[in-house]
Design a binder for these strands. Structure first.
Lengths: 180, 180
DNA sequence: CGCGACATGTAAGCAGTTACATGATTAT
DNA sequence: ATAATCATGTAACTGCTTACATGTCGCG
């Protein structure tokens, strides 16, 4: 599916960037729905250059350090927009190790289950607070053609997702406590 | 992490099964949180045999067809329970191609965005109906030590997850329509 | 007798992670 | 000076998917 390819082309659509910058974007801005390590990004960039979807210029930082600043080409923009406009069927539900554990929870005692659930709950509550705070930085819904529009949509989705996960974990804890 | 290993050990904890049966479980019962193809299951079973976590007996079906019926060993049970009892930190949010597309949605026109959102919505609504129906088969919350307890928890989680996804998609459609 | 389900495997390749490897720049 | 961050790459390995490959059983 080459999704990383399009994720990179999308980021470069906003402006030129180095591989290092891209890695940061994946670990900060996009972390709620896509990630990539630098070890995957650098080879992918090389491939995109060979496909003529991006080009790069070498920029000297300080005295000698060479930075490769990548830009999207017209061919790259075309490829990106074609991908973006496709109507793709719903993906399979993502794998979830914790849900797998809970599926098998009858094999462990109720006290342990509650301990595990509380541990997850704590972490999701922290994540929820962080995401809500970020969302509250938006005073209003950004215009549909601004770069912030997409950010707002996915952030709203992330907040809702965490909120539901928290609610589910609390339900699970209650179901367990009923039998304690 | 060898999660497939533990997913298989968990299924075999309930009773002996063939590789074919396991594949069906992954594509029906566990599909909301874990999946595996037969091409991954058969080699994994061979590995589990070599690790002495499972054994198998050959059963003849019909005239000549040899079925390998796998059972979990005591060593396997031990390994499974050890995995099940671990307190694992929250996983990274799963990748989501549709959210990635929506993040970049400012690059396509509002009408196309709405078309894509409606298409997703339709599919998630169908999935939601199916999951709700399945959940309604439970007249009450199953006892904490029954095999059905885990099924109930994850099913409830799946229904809640779909419900929130639907709500989010509708929000996105509304945000888009405001600018149309 | 033909078709769909049952049943088991292997091979090639893509996607992604962890670890290895190196070096420059900037702020303290 | 020294530590954190900037910056770029490769190698080995795990996990997973798609395709290849084969053959039986049970039902209509």
């Amino acid at each position: 599916m080459r999704t990383l390819k399009y994720a990179i082309l999308g980021l470069l659509s906003k402006g030129p960037m180095t591989g290092y910058d891209l890695a940061k974007e994946f670990n900060v801005t996009l972390v709620e729905f896509w990630t990539a390590k630098h070890s995957q990004i650098y080879p992918e960039l090389a491939k995109l250059v060979s496909e003529e979807l991006v080009t790069y210029e070498i920029e000297i930082s300080g005295e000698v350090l060479e930075k490769k600043v990548y830009s999207i080409t017209n061919k790259g923009k075309e490829s990106f927009l074609k991908w973006l406009n496709r109507d793709e069927p719903m993906e399979q539900t993502p794998k979830d190790v914790f849900r797998l554990r809970m599926f098998y929870s009858n094999y462990i005692d109720v006290t342990s289950r509650i301990r595990m659930l509380e541990y997850q709950l704590k972490q999701h509550e922290e994540r929820y607070l962080y995401l809500s705070d970020t969302k509250n930085n938006f005073k209003e819904i950004p215009p549909a053609n601004s770069h912030e529009f997409g950010s707002y949509l996915v952030l709203e989705g992330a907040v809702m997702r965490e909120s539901t996960t928290i609610e589910w974990l609390k339900n699970c804890i209650n179901h367990c406590k009923m039998y304690k």
